[in-house]
Every structure is written in C-alpha cells, then in structure tokens.
Nucleic acid binder design. Structure first.
Lengths: 213, 213
DNA sequence: GTTTTCATGTAACCCGTTACATGATTCA
DNA sequence: TGAATCATGTAACGGGTTACATGAAAAC
C-alpha cells in the first residue's frame, strides 16, 4: 500500500525545515511557501501525502509534543509534530550535497539557497558555480537565438526575449557577487553574506522555465 | 472516447501558431518552444494528444498539403498539415481577448505577448496593464514579507528575496515602458514597438512562480 | 454560542513528461 | 545500405492541484 515514491524538491524542503526544528504539518506548509521560491503555495493535498511517504520511509517520526504549552486538558494530541530520524538527517545531508544537473533547476536552487546556513562552504561554492554556469549557458542560448532571429520575428516577442536575456545577465552578475563574497569570507573574516549593496545590483530569484536547450 | 478537456496555454499557443500559417505537428513543436516562454520544450506526448483534441472539437482540420515540393512518388502523405477552421479562428479570437486573472500568469502572459501582432490595441492595453498590476501586487507582497522578516531570517534567503524583489521591480518598469509606448503609438505615428533602449532598461520575461499570495 | 482559524486528511483530476513503438525520408 | 533526422503516435506514470470531509481550539 505504501504510496509511490514521492521525491524531488518537496522532500528536500520538508527535511530541511524539520532539520531546523520539529513542526506540525500546518506550520510546515507556511514555512514551505516562504522557502520554495519566494511564493508558491504548496497545498495540503501534496503536503500530507508527502509526509506520510516520509514516515513510511522512516525519515521522520511523529512526536507527541508533550510540552509545557498545552494548558488544561490532558494530552489528547491535536497536532502531530514531526521530527527527523537519524536516517532523515543523513538523507538531508545527502540532498544538501547533491550537486547533479537537476540541482540547478530554478526551484531546487532556491531551496538549496534556503538551507545554505546548514551547508558546508565547499558545497555552497559548488552549488553557486554550478548555477552560474547553467545561467551562462542559458544566456548564450538566448543570445544566439536573438541574433538568429533579429528582424525576422515579431517586435513584441523580440522585446520579451531581450527582457529575458537581460534578466539572465542580471542573475549571472548576482551569482558572481555571491561567489566573490564566499571567497572573501574563506580568506578573511566572518561577516554576514551580501550585507550591503556593493554594486547596487542584486536581482531576480528563483524562477522556472523548464530548461531545455 | 473523445479525450478529456485539454485546455490552457497549450491550446492557445497552438491555435495562435496555426492562425499565422498551417503547419504539421513536428514543426509546430519547434515554434511552440520559441513561443512558450523563451525556452521550455513541450513534448510530443503533450502535443499530439492536444492536436487530436482540437480535431475532435472541430477547431482544426487536417489538410493533405498537396503542394509543389513533393517530388516523385504519388501523394502518400507523410506529413499531416493542420489548419484552423472558422470555429478555430473564433476560438483564438476569444482567447486573445480573454483578460481574466489567469491571463496574467507568467506563462499565459508570454503567449499573449507572442500574439500581440494579431491582438487589437485596446486588448493589448488591458493585458499589459493587468499584468503590471499583478506584478505590483507581487512586489508589495515581497516588500512586506521582506520588511516583516528583516534580521529574523537567514542571510542567504534574504539575499534571494531581495534579488527577487528587484527582479519584479524591473518587470514593472519594463511593462510601464511598453504601456507608454503603446500610448504614444495611439496618438502619434506607427513606429516599431520598443525599437530602442530608451532608458537602457529592459528586463526579464515570462517566468513561472505559481502565483499564490 | 456561533464563527474563525487551526489542523488533518482523501479522492478525483489535470497537465504534462518519459519511454517506447513505428515508419518514412535524406544523406553519406 | 545503413545511419541520422523527420514525423507521428501511445501507455504508464508523476507530481502537483481542487474540492471535499471532518473536527478541535480560539476569538468574539
């Protein structure tokens, strides 16, 4: 009966949030929306089956939240608080370090970034550089396509493509800044990440276009 | 037996392309990839069933492409060329003018823009302004969330959110430029759309975040 | 005491993908 | 003649959504 192989970013995000602190589903969902690319509400119809799957796989367990806050009535637990098992922690660590091609998909990158605080410095580097080279590829594709079609295609589409290209260029610059900051931090002190507007240039975030060149 | 209600952007995009010129599936797919948000390959597994559905609904018909190019062997038609029926043209016109909330979803907006050449000026206006107000809403949401979380959340996430916010701001400016250009065109001459870099500011295109505030 | 919000879940469906199967045409 | 690419299609699955059903706790 055990449900079929739910995987992908959702698993990653859930494990990451529970890694920070145990939580129940409802709250998890709200955090999830913040983490999964700025907005994008994931629904209960995805969340609860997902949690069930993680339970079945032994990566999380229910914990009855026997805490100090519940006031009067005895422990008829209403909320189901989930927490990571050791296997869950291992799995999270594995996902954090996974830097395969899919990891640069816009969504996955956003989630990776959200958990950078629990990510080793070298892995952070790999992720940022991987993402950047992906974006550079995207950029040159767009550039080529623009050059190819110049004058041939509808002006509106052209404007859109230029807009898109410049967006990608922005992203590359932004990533470069992040990378340089990481490098400085390795050598130098331990100041916060991108705490200032060095160039006044910080741009757009996790977006989606199903990349296929 | 008729397949189940395939709808959404794909239908719109197919009708739009066939509106410009009759085409067979394989070529359609390539054009589709250009139109549907800069990249993003739609697969045959979606395309052909989609075409079948449009056939069943009488919006397109097969046309045997009896042309001058086929050299020797008699007309054993290999390619199936599709073209719009009058009903198909009506449907396309309807979709073009449809300016309901879903029309501002990133994907749909990109497709709308791709067919602006066959879109009446007032409708273009409605679409651009609708899109802009959506983006303004998105912007203020992000802004609020950033203000709320300042200092509270992880620095990397913060950087990402700032990047996202500025991306949205760029998009608003870009839309404003397009809108102003449309207005000038109504009053004045008939020059090309956004043919220059007036402010040097033209940005990112059709992206996806499943909008849910 | 009733309405909101918190909280958990399921069933049906939607839109799309991958992997596969098939065959014609073009090119070396 | 065999390989590449053009061209059309189907079956199985995947990851998500909506709409629904249910109930406890908090707020008014």
């Amino acid at each position: 009966m055990a449900t079929g192989r739910r995987s992908g970013v959702l698993e990653f995000a859930i494990l990451g949030l529970l890694h920070d602190a145990p939580m129940h589903g409802y709250e998890l969902r709200k955090r999830l929306n913040a983490v999964m690319g700025s907005f994008r509400a994931i629904s209960y119809g995805s969340l609860y089956p997902g949690l069930k799957d993680l339970l079945d796989r032994g990566l999380i367990v229910e914990a009855g939240a026997a805490d100090a806050s519940a006031p009067v009535l005895s422990g008829r637990r209403a909320k189901i608080v989930y927490e990571l098992t050791p296997e869950g922690k291992d799995r999270f660590a594995e996902l954090v370090s996974r830097t395969g091609p899919e990891s640069w998909e816009d969504e996955a990158f956003g989630v990776h970034l959200a958990f950078f605080a629990s990510t080793p410095a070298e892995v952070r580097m790999r992720i940022l550089e991987g993402r950047r080279s992906r974006m550079e590829e995207r950029r040159s594709n767009l550039h080529a396509s623009l050059a190819r079609n110049r004058e041939r295609i509808d002006t509106y589409t052209l404007a859109l493509q230029r807009h898109g290209l410049e967006g990608v260029e922005r992203e590359v610059r932004w990533l470069t800044e992040l990378i340089e900051h990481e490098q400085n931090e390795r050598r130098g002190g331990s100041s916060a990440v991108v705490d200032d507007r060095t160039t006044g240039d910080t741009g757009a975030g996790p977006r989606r276009p199903r990349t296929r060149g």
